[in-house]
Write a protein that binds this DNA or RNA. Structure first.
Lengths: 204, 204
DNA sequence: GTCTATATTCCGATAGAC
DNA sequence: GTCTATCGGAATATAGAC
């Protein structure tokens, strides 16, 4: 792959993720990559094409790793800890990702959402089974599995979606925020375990 | 207030919330309101003005109610229950709200965030004190107050931000989703209480 | 491959008739 | 107040020299 092409691609990733499709400007992408619009169109014929490539690439790097986590044979509580740690770590390195994906899904409608989900090949069903099973076995308190999954995802993802709001509200620097998220991995894990673990099965 | 003006305003609200500022088209707003662009500009001189009015109106309807909740004299666990119920109920009636606010804050930067927060007059400090106090008194387990607040907000708000994604992933209708959110009020409350309540203070 | 210059399309905003 | 027609700027995309 061409060096210039990569530079453009990275630049586009940056700009699209921060401003969204409609808010991004080809000019800004070109500036950011240190080239001009003409050359930009030489490598990527249209804005749409460039955008789609950015989305594809982004999703495809994350999907397999998540998939591995979810389908492993570990016990639920261990799986949850791994999941939370992996998710928050990933988002610390890509803090803009959630708002990007979520806004574009709102913007472009259901087909876009369907396509993303298709690529992620997420099957929450196996996880839901596991939650139901471990509940019946008495390892965890009875909970609605879907609500449970929503709780986990919410606590991992939401802070990054609301990042600017949070920083403003508490008066935090960039580094403060990242440190807060770093602590958060253990804090959220604990919170979940405290909420659902049965007291008479103290192993873990 | 003029009838036409209201129709335009509602239409703008709809379009802005779904597409964001950059993605919204004056033409589409006009179409949706059943009038033409000329008339649109007669009532609202510029797109910026229209947008700001939509934001102001939206924020101002919610702020006072939240403020009352947070500053009441109730015990923490009761306050949390009230908060969760109020928040989710409000979002059931305005499901689009979170993604709208959060995306525009990402897009428009810190001044916008600061302004919103100013209007909300949110002071998390009193709540943080209360959490620390009740921890010392032994009513709840030791938790980091900020992380705790983040957890509550996350679980209430995130599902609405991710609504299209969730619906696609589980294959849900509009009504299914709203029903899920309705159950969620009790589910989240329980989850939080299970996570932080000390077992030797069984009242409440 | 890379640049400059230009064509083309789109969209916010204005002018003016009714 | 409401409409049609149009302007002017901005942003995407193309043409063509080097």
């Amino acid at each position: 792959m061409s060096e210039t092409r990569d530079k453009i691609f990275e630049s586009a990733r940056e700009v699209f993720i921060q401003k969204g499709f409609a808010g991004a400007r080809m000019q800004e992408i070109a500036d950011f990559a240190g080239i001009n619009k003409g050359l930009l169109h030489y490598y990527f014929k249209t804005k749409d094409i460039l955008f789609n490539e950015v989305v594809s690439m982004t999703v495809e790097t994350l999907a397999p790793q998540l998939q591995n986590l979810v389908t492993s044979e570990d016990r639920l509580l261990d799986k949850i800890r791994q999941f939370v740690y992996f998710y928050i770590d990933t988002l610390i390195q890509n803090p803009f990702l959630p708002s990007f994906i979520l806004h574009e899904i709102n913007f472009r409608g259901d087909e876009f959402a369907k396509e993303i989900i298709g690529r992620y090949k997420i099957n929450p069903i196996k996880l839901i089974w596991q939650i139901e099973l471990e509940t019946r076995e008495g390892y965890i308190r009875p909970v609605n599995p879907i609500q449970m999954l929503l709780n986990i995802l919410s606590m991992c993802i939401f802070p990054f979606v609301a990042k600017p709001m949070i920083q403003q509200a508490i008066g935090m620097s960039q580094e403060d925020f990242m440190r807060l998220m770093d602590y958060r991995k253990e804090e959220v894990t604990r919170f979940i375990i405290d909420a659902i673990k049965q007291k008479d099965y103290p192993n873990s």
